[in-house]
């Protein structure tokens, strides 16, 4: 079985997953009692005649039975027409794609942060099992995951923006992706839409600095969701690997602990962490709703939150589908990465 046919099979599976997701989301939202789906299509407060409403309803097939509406919906989806979002005042797909880079930048930064902190912490905890360092790492990571993210976000804003500002200390930005001034004076030409990447490519270091500073607090708040999981899994996996026979053989060669951990143990122990990081990235891409809202981050989650409040079912269904797609794609990429880490994995 070749790599290509494996990927092809997984992509076919992706189609099935999306069909399932779209069904669930569509029927839940459209079938909700007391909410007229037509409401999603008209501006609130705009007076419309009964005739106009009826003809709009017909035009949108909203007078058909629900299963048929679903068929129309899917047919449109495949044509690239995901509907029009009242909230974003633009087509759903355009609105999501426009906000995708902001969310990707935030989610990737959060996952990188949680692995960069979590992997070393997990290794230290494993090597110092049941000693002070281990206990400290476990307590901190459990405490971290126990805070609600929105609360933690607000605390971070209070401390690093408000209080430090009060004390005349340097502060970190608490909202948005970029400083207002720099965005006006020295804007970048969007290429990938990822501010950090674009500003580096165009050599605008001031822009890069501002974008990076804006990223710190929200990505840290977001990273805490996965940090505890990464630490725990890294620790458990490392302990398991250190018990293996090949570690004893490596020790019998007289290799120092550092080499044994980094060369012999880490690559064997990292696979479960990779899975966690991948899954988390998927979750964060869709689940940044709260953090994006707290930090006024102009990403998809922020838009989706507004959509929910506005009863914009077309947007919410589109958002959910979009997130499900990314989740499946990210998992596929992670599965392919296994083959890089572990030579025994072949597709």
């Amino acid at each position: 079985m070749g790599l290509l046919s494996y990927v092809a099979r997984r992509l076919a599976l992706l189609g099935l997953v999306l069909l399932g997701v779209s069904m669930v989301v569509f029927f839940v939202l459209r079938g909700m009692p007391g909410v007229d789906p037509l409401a999603a299509y008209i501006a609130p407060g705009l007076p419309m005649s009964a005739d106009a409403l009826a003809s709009l309803r017909r035009q949108l097939h909203l007078d058909e039975p629900l299963p048929l509406q679903y068929v129309y919906y899917v047919a449109n989806l495949l044509k690239g027409d995901w509907g029009y979002s009242r909230t974003a005042a633009q087509p759903v797909l355009d609105a999501l794609l426009a906000r995708l880079p902001a969310t990707v930048e935030l989610a990737v930064a959060a996952v990188l942060l949680s692995t960069a902190l979590g992997i070393p912490a997990g290794i230290v905890a494993a090597l110092r099992k049941d000693r002070a360092a281990d206990v400290a790492v476990r307590v901190v990571s459990i405490t971290g995951i126990s805070f609600p993210v929105f609360w933690l976000g607000i605390i971070l804003q209070l401390v690093f923006f408000y209080y430090m500002g009060q004390l005349g200390l340097p502060t970190l930005p608490s909202r948005g992706r970029i400083g207002d001034t720099i965005a006006l004076i020295d804007p970048i030409t969007p290429m990938t839409g990822l501010y950090l990447v674009d500003s580096l490519l165009t050599g605008k270091l001031a822009f890069f600095g501002s974008a990076l500073r804006h990223l710190v607090l929200p990505s840290f708040a977001l990273s805490l969701i996965s940090l505890a999981a990464v630490v725990r899994i890294m620790r458990a996996s490392m302990l398991e690997v250190l018990r293996q026979d090949y570690i004893l053989l490596a020790r019998s060669k007289g290799l120092p602990t550092r080499t044994i951990v980094m060369r012999h143990a880490l690559r064997n122990a990292i696979t479960p962490v990779l899975t966690t990081a991948g899954t988390t990235l998927g979750i964060l891409l869709g689940g940044a709703v709260v953090v994006e809202t707290v930090f006024s981050w102009p990403g998809m989650g922020n838009l989706a939150a507004q959509g929910i409040l506005n009863n914009d079912s077309i947007l919410v269904v589109g958002f959910t589908l979009f997130v499900a797609t990314m989740m499946v794609v990210v998992n596929l990429v992670v599965d392919l990465l296994y083959a890089v880490v572990d030579p025994r994995v072949r597709y």
């Binding site: 026979d245 053989l249 880490v341 030579p343």
Partner: peptide, 14 residues
């Protein structure tokens, strides 16, 4: 040292 079960004593990823 040479051990009993070579399969488990060699590192699978190196």
């Amino acid at each position: 040292l040479v051990f009993q079960n070579p399969t488990s004593y060699l590192n699978p990823v190196l």
